[in-house]
Design a protein around this nucleic acid. Structure first.
Lengths: 201, 201
DNA sequence: AAAATATGAATGAGTGCTCATTCTGTCAAT
DNA sequence: ATTGACAGAATGAGCACTCATTCATATTTT
């Protein structure tokens, strides 16, 4: 089978099964502790089959991430769409981000922690798209909100870093500390600070 | 040699040499790609000697982190001390944090990325102290600033997450994107937002 | 429409390599 | 002579990845 060629529906299913199994294991056991054989077994395919769909373990990680963050972003975008102003969208972003990542706690860990366990991840993907898209989306919302006069004229790149970085760390703390505190409440407190930080007056 | 027993000065030096070499390699090549033999060589000791000072590779990582963050925190605390108000201290914190971690870019990567590559790190250290100390220090500064009436009454835990998370992500972005943007400038923009976010009026 | 042939997807046992860790012998200090 | 630090070679466990083979489906031949 040739990778990057169009696949039959069954092949797409198989690919998806592998990715889902990979996310599940990476999330729960970590990248380095997950064996290809485990993923293969969970996906109901043979070890070798994994290599028909992905170049190597890192490549599998990258693809899993791509699928995942893409899906999440689309999901957020859809739900955010009907908000009246860009500022409202921006504030809702916190809610949906948290909501989507709490729903599947494994996913939160995957994104927040495990992804960083691929040694070549950042090196190989200096302009890596999915994360960039996520950040860009935030930046664009902020730009709009400024244009609409609803928030102060702040550096929107800085703001996107602030939002993503804070959420990332919040989720990391929450999941590694075994959910010892209320995610919702901390989120609200953070939104409060950010909201004031970008307020017009 | 018994670990955790008092060591001779030479032994302390050797320990330090190993830790410094470890930080250097972990920072540059990543935890998993760094071989004990490399660290040993760089530190001028034999492979086996590393195991006289540290239980295993993970233990070495933990200790390196402990040394490092402890040292950085003390360093920041010392420099911050003479600031007039807690609020000023809090704002200066950004500067010193960035400054100290830029100085040795390797260290920034080490803290921001590589540390998370120890699979057992978070699991084994649910109440891990050094990072907690760092966060607590931030929280305490914020509490003081509130008591002094210089900032709004915000959730100071949330604020500490916001500050650390944002700085962490900023440094990650900066170092993985090969310093394509001005760290100083982005930091200032972030401080601007946070400053407004916690402002009294 | 049955048989013969071709295609390429899928399998999974086996391979080979990479290190973390251990072990044994040496040396220095007292 | 004894103790403990140290060196560095040796070990072996773990695991990503390979590849000779099988199997299922499509295509051609009669």
């Amino acid at each position: 089978m040739k990778r990057n060629k169009k696949m039959s529906p069954e092949q797409l299913n198989k690919r998806k099964a592998i990715i889902e199994a990979a996310i599940e294991f990476f999330s729960r056991r970590g990248f380095h502790k997950t064996k290809i054989s485990q993923i293969a077994k969970a996906a109901g395919v043979a070890d070798g089959t994994v290599y028909l769909y992905f170049k190597n373990k890192d490549d599998l990680l990258i693809n899993a991430f791509e699928d995942l963050i893409g899906e999440k972003l689309v999901n957020i975008q859809n739900r955010i769409e009907h908000e009246a102003s860009a500022k409202d969208k921006l504030l809702k972003f916190f809610d949906y981000h948290i909501e989507l990542f709490t729903e599947k706690q494994a996913v939160a860990r995957f994104l927040a922690i495990e992804l960083r366990q691929s040694p070549d991840f950042y090196k190989s993907y200096p302009d890596y798209e999915p994360l960039k898209k996520y950040l860009d989306y935030l930046k664009n919302l902020a730009d709009e909100a400024i244009a609409e006069g609803d928030i102060r004229k702040v550096d929107t790149v800085a703001l996107s870093y602030l939002i993503f970085g804070t959420m990332d760390f919040l989720l990391t703390e929450w999941s590694t500390r075994n959910q010892k505190f209320s995610l919702q409440e901390k989120k609200e407190q953070i939104v409060d600070i950010v909201n004031h930080g970008i307020g017009v007056n």
